[in-house]
Write a protein that binds this DNA or RNA. Structure first.
Lengths: 203, 203, 203, 203
DNA sequence: TATGAATGAGCTTTCATTCAT
DNA sequence: AATGAATGAAAGCTCATTCAT
């Protein structure tokens, strides 16, 4: 009963395949036939769903950005609104840090950087989806901690921003813009440091 | 006395043209004919000098890296081995910061990042030429300042690294990986801050 | 009572849309999707009614030929079988001449000429429907004029043929094979001349 | 010693092949690969010489028009400036009429008509080269006949125009716009009639 | 050495046509 | 009967690269 056709299925399959192929080969070297093959559809089907290669690229990155954003938000959601903030924040920091360094996030950043010339708006757009929403959600959670008395009075937006900066800054630097894969222990260490600093300063 | 036909001249013209075209269009969009035109030679001449487009790309980036490196070293050379270290270091910092943000340096970084997939070794190579030598030379000068008593005892290599990190980190972040052009005042401010921090800490 | 879904309606809508699109774009440049859109149906519906694009083309031209033929016959029918032949023939000549120069007739001829290579039989077929029937009907009417004594004795078929030649020949030449739109006055003048010649010769 | 390369050779070969293929298949159905094959070159060579298919089409028709024009002029050149005008004109008329009905001339007209929609300027351009020059040259010769006393005083331009009209008009009509091939005898008859009419009227 | 000319390979895109519902 | 979705096939065009002079 599992129809393997279905317009939505194919669209999603194409988006996934496109992101994978683009991530592996880059925008120019990736060819549409390869994407179609990877998606298990014919080439014109790709063009039935997306006007051209450019549009497909943007859509694939947007979809990936959504997935990354969702994962990030899930990590934030796991910060308990009560209970020990150190544990919560550390756990969230580790989850975020790992997500930051996984294949998808790295590919998303790499592709965005590499195509800055051709798709200048991507940097902003992707950032808005991934980082913007994340900062907002994090600020929300922090606000509850403040209200609950676990965090001392502060501007949650500012603290959220700093928290994220403490995470991503070192990760980007150490991984050389996502070029090098970091060992899990190092990722956790960065996360722990970030959480520790925030807790010390604001708890 | 400048023969305009000399082999060396042509080679250099091709390298310059290649870098310019690559910088403007990116590796894939740039085509060899355009480079040949910009260099004022015929297309096969390009291939007489460079095996293929990849080789040309690497050579063009290497040449640009050399030029950037030379400029950077010149800035370092202007640090007086004696005299007021604050003035010296501030001047050097400004010179370096400006060089960091000029067209050539930005293009060099942009191209390197964008082609990480296809030319993975470029990041290391370019970095070695531009940043590595620079750090070395800077450490050398700092050592003389230490020896001369203008700087307190320290490991010059470490201080040099930190000095450069204080320069490039903020510049990269503020310019969004070289995407946005920074106003001169902001560049100088970053440079001044970096110098100030170093001087305060180590003078 | 005009159901807008009826099979016949759709078939006719498709034929009309097809002719319009073919007329505008030519056979090759016209695409079936565009025709379907113009007809307000889905593409497969077009294929439910017509085997393929070729068949559709032939059918669309045949339908247009029928319409042109009907209009031509109507013009001929208005020749009074009695009364002043000069007035009758002049009026009929003008009506025919105008019809000859309208969008539909011109498009029909243009398409037929342009696709002589791919659809060689069209020239004959279309001609039979438009010109053949017309000549016949005209000959019939002329015969009645002869019988009624308004025209002197002659072979009505020959006179009909000459009448039409006197109309279409100059119109084709002046309009450069239907390329240029003629002013109404010029069309009328050609018609008047044709009628005058016939009347002078045979009345 | 017969190099089969040579830029000019190839260009001409491409033009010839293009005209042949276009003549056989029409503009849309003809594909560039086929033309390249027929010319014995690779596809990109076609594009090295002509920007795109449109340009190639125009160039091929222009070249054919030149050839047709040259042949026509040659026929006119054979009108003796003295001697019996009836013989001269009849001979020229036959030569022109035959040329008018040969493959190349017919294909040139057919292609021009068929692509009026896409290349509206071709009709005028081709006509200027083939008919315009011809009428001029013919008028020149007729003028000499007038001066020599073989033709009575008249406007040579007018007579030339009428002469050509008497040739091409019937030929176009009888061959159904070049669709049907006429027997040689019929062609000659048309030519003879045209010459006879001119001679009777103006000799 | 430098070049005008040529080419093999490949890519994006389009379109007539057909399934499956 | 009508349609949303999918596809096979092909075409125009570009480009890195190489002959042959």
């Amino acid at each position: 009963m599992t129809r393997t056709g279905g317009r939505i299925d194919k669209r999603q399959a194409i988006l996934d395949a496109a992101f994978a192929v683009f991530a592996r080969a880059g925008f120019d070297a990736a060819n549409v036939q390869e994407i179609a093959d990877a998606a298990g559809v014919a080439k014109p089907t790709v063009y039935n769903h997306f006007q051209d290669k450019d549009t497909l690229f943007r859509a694939a990155l947007a979809a990936a950005a959504e997935q990354v954003a969702a994962a990030n938000l899930a990590a934030v959601a796991r910060i308990a609104p009560d209970g020990d903030p150190r544990r919560s924040l550390t756990r969230a920091a580790r989850a975020l840090a790992r997500r930051c360094c996984d294949e998808q996030s790295r590919a998303l950043r790499t592709l965005t950087y590499a195509q800055l010339g051709r798709f200048p708006e991507l940097l902003t757009d992707v950032h808005a989806v991934t980082a913007g929403r994340l900062a907002d959600a994090l600020a929300d959670r922090l606000a509850r901690l403040v209200v609950g008395g676990q965090l001392r009075h502060c501007d949650p937006a500012v603290v959220a921003e700093q928290f994220l900066a403490l995470l991503t800054g070192p990760l980007e630097r150490r991984s050389q813009l996502g070029t090098r894969r970091l060992p899990a222990a190092e990722i956790d260490a960065v996360a722990d440091n970030a959480a520790e600093t925030i807790v010390r300063t604001f708890a």
